[in-house]
Design a protein around this nucleic acid. Sequence first.
DNA 1: ATGCTGCAATGAATCGTTTCATAGCTAGCT
DNA 2: AGCTAGCTATGAAACGATTCATTGCAGCAT
Lengths: 336, 336
Amino acid sequence: MVSASVKDVAALAGVSVGTVSNVLNRPEKVSAEVTGRVQSAIDKLGFVRNDAARQLRAGMSHSIGLVVLDAANPFFSDLARGAEDRATAENLTVLVGNSNEDEGRESAYLDLFEQQRVRGVLLSPVGNVVPRLEQLRRRGIPTVLVDRQTENMSFSSVAVDDLAGGEMAAAHLLSLGRRRIAFVGGPASIRQVADRLAGAQKAIDAVAGATLEVIATESLTVLSGRSAGESIRSRPEAERPDAIFAANDLLAIGVLQGLMLMGGVNVPKEIALIGYDDIEFAAAAVVPLSSIRQPSALIGSTALELLLREAASEDGFEPTQVIFPPELIVRASTQG
Amino acid sequence: MVSASVKDVAALAGVSVGTVSNVLNRPEKVSAEVTGRVQSAIDKLGFVRNDAARQLRAGMSHSIGLVVLDAANPFFSDLARGAEDRATAENLTVLVGNSNEDEGRESAYLDLFEQQRVRGVLLSPVGNVVPRLEQLRRRGIPTVLVDRQTENMSFSSVAVDDLAGGEMAAAHLLSLGRRRIAFVGGPASIRQVADRLAGAQKAIDAVAGATLEVIATESLTVLSGRSAGESIRSRPEAERPDAIFAANDLLAIGVLQGLMLMGGVNVPKEIALIGYDDIEFAAAAVVPLSSIRQPSALIGSTALELLLREAASEDGFEPTQVIFPPELIVRASTQG
DNA sequence: ATGCTGCAATGAATCGTTTCATAGCTAGCT
DNA sequence: AGCTAGCTATGAAACGATTCATTGCAGCAT
């Protein structure tokens, strides 16, 4: 026998299957004596409930689906952890699918979740998924978008306020007395980059005498950052900025390398430096990096929260857009 | 109506439910005309198969469970990708659980997988899971261990040969003509560290005149590496090693920082440096790092392969231990 | 003795799909 | 015409847990 069922347990305990089910789901309805007999039968047979049968009967699974753009990105694994923690508290399981920024894989995961009749779906979308999500909604499966706002506002979403983050980073540099700020980042077509720059611009406009120079990069990588850093180091000292805001931590690490090469510029004394994302390596850089932290886990748990609320309300649900403020993390690269 | 069933499809198409099922599962058994009618009924109703019912009937799910020690670690996310790719080819889904090195969470995921009647389980174990796995096996759920060999050899496993990796790294340094090699790493209680050191020792013993100095560290972090690097830089030039093998890339990055600080030692000219793991940051270091790469994705796909084989063979299965050779990746830190 | 109340336990029905033995039908052969 | 072979299509049974209307029974009041 591969696996015991309630029937086997009932037979061994000398009770009906209904009673076994009651022991499992409403123990207060069953006498202590019977409960004992059933329990020992369960133990003896090594009975484990069959989830498929429970789901079939219940008409809905107790899992929710999460599709992320890149499972290897710490931002998303933290987000997933946040969602999982919240789900566990609700006795739900999170199934994580990695779309790898591929529309085909994204779609395959949505199919799978639909077949599994999940309670709901959290999604950081690749392509235009609105029609697909409307289909899910018609089937009674709610969706919450993470890390990307919807265009049409008909779905709930949770994201981070990159504008505020940019403003926060620049304001921090200004508060140190720095006035010649440089923004290193690109391409500007990435919404996050554009928002962070716009935020920085706003903070600088508010301070008389402060200037913002934009140094465009091709990508958000360490390498791009390094060449930006080197080009700054090679300038005459008077023409260098006295503070740099990099669009993410990878860039910032590269900038740092470029500046310090051959005993070059002193960070933070000559140039203060701040990044964005607060990845693990930020704290481990040659000069520990200040950064802007995104509440990744909180995003995940909040998204799940919205999902549960939407699932609970029968109809007439009002989609909600949540935007979180980022957090400033100060380290050596902007101190002294 | 929340969701259409085969019955609804059958009614609309004017056929029996058995026929609908045949259209879905053995189209060749059904006439073209009927197939057409059924298909259009499916489309009109937006019918999606209920996975729970299929699983119940089939007696087994079409997913396999994977429990990893740390979902944020690139090694494991690559491993998961490898397993997923292989599973997709077999029309299976991988459910990924993150134990976060916590025995409780590990156990909870194993419970869940057991309830879901998964086809099998891939596991990088935290504690002593052998009794638990024997329970799963009795239930007909095979297990394959990843990244850790079993003590008792009664389960299949897939791991990497750290001994060979250490030997490979040291042999590479020796092939550059270096003879005064230093191993930076610790604590020695970690199996991987001990094996890598033992491998390096073996390579060095084979070359006359080569010596191996062991520089112990407290942990495998950038910080530990940095202090090791600084202590080496502060030695008189004649007493410095001419090559360093760091037990992992984080250490190596730290060592590199320690050596190069204040325009210190030239890498690779004065000291060649090699790390281990080939993490993404290795290539992005100030001096791109040579490293030993582990075939993470291959480990995942192989583990799944073993699992499938074990699941297929009714009984009398012979557990298999697969150990992969690591791969040498040469970059600037050991060239010139 | 009778009726009533309330608690325990029962077991048939249900969820949606797949399977399989069976029935209906056509075509081909004798 | 009678028979067989070969297709299609049918529909009831099965998977395992849960639910709920029902039964059985003990205790209590009349």
